[in-house]
């Protein structure tokens, strides 16, 4: 599978009924309990310490220390090549699928080492779903797109309800409820992207990662996805990579700015420059590099 073209978590292949492989289970009640708590005081979903990535020995990202808190939207921004997409793939082990990719440092997910050999990467990608830049529904019906993951995972009870709930959660139900058996490829780009989000939601994830989910969409569809992101945070943790700084300003609770350092050898490597509340990043960032980037004077 090409990890850059999929629009949801990698196809789950664990046997039906397989218990979580080394990862604690969170109930919906656990996820929604933190709504009114200040972001920094909410549960830490990801605690990244010294995270870096090399591709075929060449370092693309280094020394990222970043905490991502529950029930919030965290945006990753920065110029091209700064490693933000590389980093987001560390959060559900998508880099495992790229030949020559090596992740160092530590990524704790709810306090557990995400890269522990005992942890099943398929289970990881079920818990931590992903939506990519280009919506890419399966060439199946709308219904079967949503039902695919639950069927493979053995979550077959009340499948119709599960499909309906996922589509409602993705704000797509009203638009497709009368044509669930029609092909998903007949949907508009924005509808396809929401379908892909619904497909990720159908397997009951804890986290939704979005890698530039609106870059191929028109403003109306973008607005629908942004509204959806905000509504999802009552149950889910959302991490989004975006080139659109106004989008980060609109939807994110926290914003992390990545940039590129150039070493003495001329090699370029992505680094995390600053992370803070979004309003702070866009009104009074602490770091001059962040200021230069968000004001358009750099990058």
């Amino acid at each position: 599978m090409d990890p850059t073209s999929d629009s949801t978590a990698a196809p789950p292949v664990t046997a039906p009924g397989t218990p979580s492989a080394g990862l604690a289970t969170l109930s919906v009640e656990d996820r929604t309990a933190s709504g009114s708590v200040p972001i920094e005081e909410r549960e830490v979903v990801f605690d990244c310490q010294g995270v870096g990535v090399r591709y075929n020995g060449k370092r693309a990202l280094r020394d990222v220390d970043l905490r991502i808190h529950a029930n919030a939207v965290t945006a990753l921004i920065g110029p091209s090549g700064c490693g933000k997409s590389t980093f987001i793939r560390c959060l559900n082990r998508m880099n495992d699928l790229i030949p020559g990719a090596a992740v160092d440092g530590a990524v704790a997910y709810h306090g557990e080492d995400l890269y522990d050999p005992q942890v099943d990467p398929i289970e990881v990608r079920k818990r931590i779903g992903m939506v990519f830049q280009k919506p890419n529904p399966f060439p199946k019906s709308i219904y079967d797109n949503i039902a695919f993951g639950p069927r493979v995972l053995g979550m077959k009870d009340q499948l119709d309800d599960r499909v309906e709930q996922a589509l409602k959660r993705a704000a797509l139900w009203d638009e497709v409820k009368d044509r669930l058996k029609e092909g998903a490829l007949g949907l508009s780009g924005g509808q396809q992207q929401r379908l892909c989000i619904a497909r990720a939601l159908a397997v009951e994830p804890d986290v939704i990662l979005m890698d530039e989910p609106c870059s191929a969409l028109d403003p109306i569809s973008t607005s629908a996805i942004e509204d959806l992101m905000l509504s999802l945070t009552d149950e889910y943790t959302v991490v989004i990579v975006t080139h659109n700084m106004q989008q980060a300003a609109r939807v994110a609770d926290m914003t992390a700015f990545f940039s590129v350092d150039q070493g003495e050898t001329g090699a370029r490597c992505g680094v995390l420059v600053e992370v803070d509340r979004t309003e702070r990043i866009f009104t009074n960032p602490a770091n001059e590099r962040t200021e230069a980037y968000v004001t358009g004077r750099f990058g």
């Binding site: 700084m245 990043i281 866009f282 009104t283 009074n284 960032p285 962040t290 004001t295």
Partner: peptide, 9 residues
Amino acid sequence: QAPVASDLR
């Protein structure tokens, strides 16, 4: 121009 940061201020 949608100014931000010091420009917004």
